[in-house]
């Protein structure tokens, strides 16, 4: 299992790539087979090919895109608010011990609450319109950004602070030219995780109170007992989430490579 990893072991690598490609295909083939011969009920678990068909028809009719674009706008707005707030509060908590002392207790209590549990409260406070969805997404993306920003600032290398001290660099310059740049890799990680979290929150928000969006499409398909649409939507959400994460990871790595000649993206 944990064999010694030797460099340039192409054979091992190649085998792993083949497994990585073949196993999911095998699963799909089995799924297709099981569903067609009636091993599993097609009304509960539709066959992959039928899900693809549903996907194509929804794509053609524009129904999928219409709902997705609504979700995208909500995510964009909510994420923007959540990320900005996360970075700002993160800076304040990371830089000022008094702010940290004041907010730490509140953060520790609120943070473990799943976003979906907040949906009823947000609806109570903000109604069922656009704003309540944006708020839920903002909350969802806020936490990873906040925590990573705080972490980035608090883990600034003390050796660099010592350098600043011996060269009599003032506090303002130390903060903005050393502490902030030190925290950037962690902040980027937070922004990436926040985006994933925002995308997960939109579905939660739309499943409860909405008449548009990808989450609504799932709710609707449940009400009409349309398993194909249900599965199709879930898979689309997964694939989009994957692309968002991969895309942002790349962006992060590119940025760090470009500015520091090294990228250690976690």
């Amino acid at each position: 299992m944990f064999d010694l990893q030797k460099k340039n072991n192409l054979k091992q690598k190649r085998i792993r790539i083949i497994i990585a490609i073949c196993f999911p295909i095998l699963v799909l083939l089995f799924w297709q087979y099981a569903s067609t011969v009636g091993l599993i009920k097609a009304s509960l678990v539709p066959a992959p090919l039928n899900i693809v068909k549903t996907f194509l028809s929804h794509l053609e009719s524009g129904k999928l895109w219409k709902n997705l674009s609504v979700s995208f706008v909500r995510v964009a707005c909510g994420y923007f608010i959540g990320a900005v707030a996360g970075v700002l509060v993160g800076f304040l908590m990371g830089l000022f011990k008094s702010v940290n002392a004041a907010l730490n207790g509140i953060v520790s209590v609120l943070r473990p609450i799943p976003t979906i549990a907040l949906v009823p409260i947000v609806i109570l406070l903000a109604g069922i319109g656009f704003s309540s969805k944006v708020i839920i997404i903002a909350i969802g993306s806020f936490w990873p950004v906040l925590l990573n920003t705080i972490h980035g600032i608090q883990t600034v290398d003390n050796k660099l602070i010592e350098v600043a001290y011996t060269y009599r660099i003032n506090k303002l310059k130390t903060t903005f030219k050393i502490i902030v740049p030190s925290a950037i890799p962690a902040i980027l990680t937070g922004l990436r995780l926040g985006m994933s979290s925002a995308w997960m929150s939109v579905v939660a928000a739309e499943m409860i109170a909405s008449s548009t969006g990808i989450g609504y499409l799932i709710t609707l398909s449940r009400e009409t007992a349309n398993a194909r649409v249900m599965y199709m939507c879930v898979l689309v959400i997964g694939v989009i989430g994957l692309f968002i994460d991969k895309g942002l990871t790349r962006l992060e790595r590119y940025y760090l490579m470009k500015t520091r000649g090294i990228a250690d993206v976690k």
Partner: peptide
Amino acid sequence: NGPSPKCSMIFQEARLFPW
């Protein structure tokens, strides 16, 4: 009495700012 401009320190590690 505080870090003096008359003296500079070099550490074992270069301690450069990577950005």
